[in-house]
Structure formats: C-alpha cells, structure tokens
C-alpha cells in the first residue's frame, strides 16, 4: 500500500494539474452528464407540466411515441431530409475538382473564399432571403425556371408537400456546399502529385485519373462528410423552423417536421416532458450510433494521452 501514498511533491503536482481542468469537469458533470441522466429518467416517467411530480411508467412514453403516426413521420422526414442533404458532398466535390484544376493561384484563392461565402452568412438572414427566393409567385427560382421552360412556373417550394423537401434541401445545399468544398479541396490537395504523373506517362486521360486515382483517394473524406452530414441532418431544426415561420409543425402538410421539431413541440408548445424526453433519447441513440461509426473511421479516440 505504501507506493499508493503520494509524496508532498506529487500531491502538489496533482493539485496544480486539477486546477486547470476542474472547472470544465464540473461544468460537464452539471450541464451534460447530469441532464443526460435526467433525460433517461424523464423518458421513463410521467412528468407534470411544471416539471415535478414523476410517476414511473416504464416504456409507456416510447410506446406512445411510436403509436403516433406524426412521430413516425417525423423520423422518416428527418431521415429523408438528411439523405437529401448529402447532396452537398457531390456538389462540394465538383466545386473542389474545378477549383483545384485551375492550379494554385490568386484566382484559386478567390474562388475558395467566394464559394465558402454562403456558409458564413448569418443563418437567419439566409432563411429570410430564401423565403423570398423560393416564393411560388415572383420568387427568384420560379422566375429562373420559367425562363427555361418558356412558361410561367408556379411551384410552392416551401408550401407544397410535394416540393417542400426539395425547397429546404436547396437552401441546405446552398449554405453547406461551400463547407463540403473546403474539406474536399484540402483532401484533394493532399493526394501526392506523382501518382498523377505516373498515370500520365501510362497514357491515362483526365477522366481515367478522376475515376481511378482521385475518387479512391477521397474515400475517407467522403465518409467523414457522410457521417457528419447525417449527424447534422438528424438534429436539423433551425433552418426549417425559421423558414416555415417559427412553426414547430413545419408547414407543408407536415412533410418538413423533423424529430427535433417534434421534440420542441412537446417541450415548449404543449409540454409533455416525459414524451419529449423519450423523443430525445431516440435522437440520442441515432446520433450515438453514427458518432461511433465516425470514431471508428477516423480513429479519433485512439490518440494516446
């Protein structure tokens, strides 16, 4: 047992070290770990509107959720919208390939900065602007399409249940393609150039090189963007909430209501904390699974301390 006792110096060393991390640790305990345990507990209880008076009801909240067609629809909406949102990957890849191909120059710097611009614009401004861009009558997109079709196009990009998912996806891709481009571009530029030179000598053309060298070398970049894109998509809330006018129902016949909007509705509009906590747990499990895949792919926690 003697070697477990600390010398005075070691004790001092430990106290100093802990003085650097103790505030953050307490913060995480109080604001992350404890609330997370509360979420689990609430999800198994019936909770009064005031947030007190718990009554254990087992998995009733979960059963109740899955018996609601609106919740099941929110899950499927969220998955569909997340997958549609993955369009940012090919779009960003296309931008990156084009920007990369003009060579390292001032012009490349300009495009890099310019294409990333939409991502830096305050979200709420973007949503306000796109509410007008996507208007059925007189909106920019419909005007633009009318030019091509040759007759007046009237599509309710945000109101028509058939098109609303495309409407919000357009906004999502417009905002996030620049980010995807940046990640794609730095991945592209990390591919050793001599592979391409060797391929040129073997007589490969540009398309061969793209398919046989570039794309296989981008696998980890694509999977990173895929996983993080799905994680962001699952917790999607702000853009749809604002663009449909601060409405947790999401408008467009409910085709836009995501899981988080559903949770919001049952937390703050018609509070039923037990049900909304059960919804939160389901969201948590989805994100957890994806994050674990991400950790496996990127070797995040392998990093030795």
């Amino acid at each position: 047992m003697k070697n477990l006792r600390l010398t005075k110096r070691e004790l001092k060393q430990n106290v100093t070290a802990y003085s650097f991390i103790i505030v953050s640790i307490v913060t995480l305990l109080v604001l992350v770990y404890y609330p997370m345990i509360s979420t689990v507990r609430y999800s198994l209880n019936r909770i009064g509107i005031v947030g007190y008076g718990e009554e254990y009801i087992g998995l009733e909240n979960y059963k109740m959720l899955f018996s609601q067609s609106t919740f099941v629809r929110a899950i499927s909406n969220t998955l569909i919208l997340s997958i549609m949102g993955l369009l940012t990957i090919p779009v960003g890849f296309l931008f990156a390939v084009l920007i990369n191909s003009i060579g390292n120059s001032k012009l490349q710097g300009f495009f890099r900065v310019g294409y990333y611009l939409p991502n830096i614009i305050t979200g709420v401004s973007v949503y306000l602007i796109f509410r007008v861009v996507l208007m059925s009558d007189g909106g920019l997109l419909n005007n633009f399409l009318s030019l091509f079709v040759g007759r007046k196009v009237i599509i309710g990009w945000l109101a028509d249940p058939k098109f609303a998912r495309w409407g919000v996806t357009i906004v999502w891709v417009w905002m996030n393609a620049g980010y995807s481009m940046l990640i794609n571009l730095s991945s592209l530029q990390a591919i050793p150039l001599d592979i391409y030179d060797a391929a040129s000598i073997d007589g490969a053309n540009a398309l061969n090189k793209l398919i046989l060298i570039t794309i296989p070398n981008m696998k980890s970049c694509f999977s990173f963007l895929f996983i993080t894109g799905m994680i962001n998509g699952l917790a999607r809330f702000t853009d749809i909430f604002i663009i449909t006018g601060n409405d947790a129902y999401g408008g467009a016949g409910g085709t836009l209501q995501t899981i988080l909007m559903y949770i919001f509705q049952f937390s703050f509009e018609s509070p039923n904390y037990g049900v909304s906590s059960a919804g939160s747990m389901i969201l948590f499990v989805f994100v957890l699974l994806l994050t674990m895949v991400n950790v496996k792919l990127t070797g995040f926690l392998k990093d030795e301390v």
Partner: peptide
C-alpha cells in the same frame, strides 16, 4: 501535465462529443 486519472478525464470529456446538445435540451 502528469496527474492521477488523466486518461479517465480525457475520455470523460471527449465522450461528451457523442451527446448531441439537443438530446439534453429538456432537462437542461
């Protein structure tokens, strides 16, 4: 720095990244 429980606290912190903020919105 060297201290007791370093590895534990590091994982303790990083694990938080797996908990989306939204899933603890209500209790918070």
């Amino acid at each position: 720095l060297k201290f007791i429980g370093k590895r534990f606290w590091y994982v303790f912190m990083l694990a938080v990244m797996m908990v989306p903020f939204e899933s603890r919105l209500v209790p918070l």
